[in-house]
Amino acid sequence: MATYDLTVNGRAVKVTGESDTPLLWAVREQLGLTGTKYGCGAGLCGACTVHVDGVAVRSCQTSAASAAGKKVTTIEGLGANGLHALQKAWIAEETAQCGYCQSGQIMKAAELLARTPKPNREQIVEHMDGNLCRCGSYPRIVRAIERASREG
């Protein structure tokens, strides 16, 4: 059992666990940041997507230890001042149905817009593919990303 120093959503925090404790459970169960979701635990769904130093990672496949000293951003920290453009677009398009996958979708999309502010449709599909949504909100995910890119 060890303690790791992380910066999560701009805050210095400590989490404990074995060296392989996934970041997913550290942020959810130790830090109470429950917007990040468990869907498969195997890197197959994207519900657990967070940013580590600006890169979207699957937190179920990322150890808390490996994030030590790095900047972790979860859905709760995405909009530094109020809502992120993507969140506004997600609301405007009413993208969420059950909503369970959507934190991961938004975090994945945020990485795309940070790199490619004006993605075309293929770029959106390619980037977002593999973030699963069982409710079938995919058409609105694409529309929300297009809207956020337009309305910034």
Binding site: L33, T34, I75, E76, G79, L83, Q87, T95, A96
Partner: peptide
Amino acid sequence: QRIDIVEKSTGAAQYAIDATAPGMVY
């Protein structure tokens, strides 16, 4: 607007997997 749309776009929506109780174990 759906009443749950904002909380489902910010990570604030509460599912059973997010619930806690004092002294809880897993």
